[in-house]
């Protein structure tokens, strides 16, 4: 009888051991990948024209992407064409890395809803794109709500134009700009019935914590690009997600060329 119990326990424990290890590393042979150029350019009023251009990588290729050094790049606005030569030296205050930029005297003007045209020539092939800068939408107020565990949620209120289709991004940084991003929402105003809009997230903050909220008023192409990036990232790892390709607004190149405007407000919770 003791033996029978022992065998039964052995069987049960074997079964339990076999339940483990649902996930394992495997080798996948991917087909050869053509390293399509990748470009990221944000037109920020008052800042020089600048962008990042490099070759995208095969999925299991090396870690460091190869910059494209010999591209001929210009941005045209109100008939004025500004060249962006290769220049990868970082400047003070740069949050992003750029390898093409205009001279420091050529700044992006505050011309809302007017066309900026991009031309990129790589190995004799020219790629074009066009975008605008959206008017800043200001943050009306920030308010907090804390629970009995001293965890707080933060909500932002702003006014949405009722007669236009607008796209927003809402980032909440912990402590200061450049701190941890605690919340990141991308949304369009199709959901909103009222002019006054409120967005609230979860209880991600400690009572007394300092936060900075940045509200972007985005172009449609920027919104579409970010949504496709999210979808593409979600499709990798989610068996129920729809496969997604990146929605670039530069035909022939992966990437985004867009204006960038935002309003900041900080709040200590």
């Amino acid at each position: 009888m003791v033996n029978k119990v022992r065998y039964l326990l052995l069987f049960v424990s074997s079964m339990l051991l076999l339940q483990c290890n649902f996930e394992k590393e495997v080798t996948i042979e991917l087909p050869a990948y053509t390293n399509t150029p990748y470009l990221e350019c944000y037109l920020e009023p008052g800042k020089p024209y600048r962008l990042l251009l490099y070759k995208s990588l095969g999925y299991f290729e090396g870690l460091i992407p190869t910059p494209i050094r010999d591209a001929n790049i210009t941005i045209t606005h109100r008939g004025v064409t500004i060249p962006l030569p290769y220049d990868s030296i970082p400047r003070d205050g740069d949050l992003r890395f750029y390898n093409y930029r205009s001279n420091d005297t050529s700044k992006v003007p505050t011309h809302y809803d007017e066309a900026f045209d991009l031309s990129v020539m790589i190995n004799g092939v020219t790629y074009h794109s066009s975008s605008t800068i959206k008017k800043i939408v200001t943050i009306d107020s920030l308010y907090k709500n804390c629970n009995n565990e001293a965890r707080c949620q933060l909500a932002v209120r702003f006014k949405d134009q009722m007669n236009t289709v607008d796209f927003y991004r809402y980032l909440v940084f912990s402590d200061s700009l450049g701190g941890d991003i605690k919340q990141d929402f991308i949304l369009n105003d199709e959901l909103f019935d009222t002019e006054e809009v409120g967005i609230a997230g979860g209880y991600n903050f400690n009572d007394g914590q300092t936060t900075v909220v940045r509200l972007f008023h985005m172009t449609k192409e920027h919104y579409d690009f970010l949504v496709s990036v999210n979808n593409s990232q979600n499709a990798n790892g989610n068996p129920f997600a729809q496969p997604a390709s990146i929605k670039s607004n530069i035909p022939g190149i992966i990437g985004i060329f867009t204006g960038l405007t935002y309003d900041n407000k900080d709040k200590t919770l």
Partner: peptide, 14 residues
């Protein structure tokens, strides 16, 4: 469907 390439997105905060 599996991805065969990748890129790094700096995004707006960089």
């Amino acid at each position: 469907s599996l991805p065969i390439g990748r890129f790094y997105l700096q995004d707006v905060d960089g």
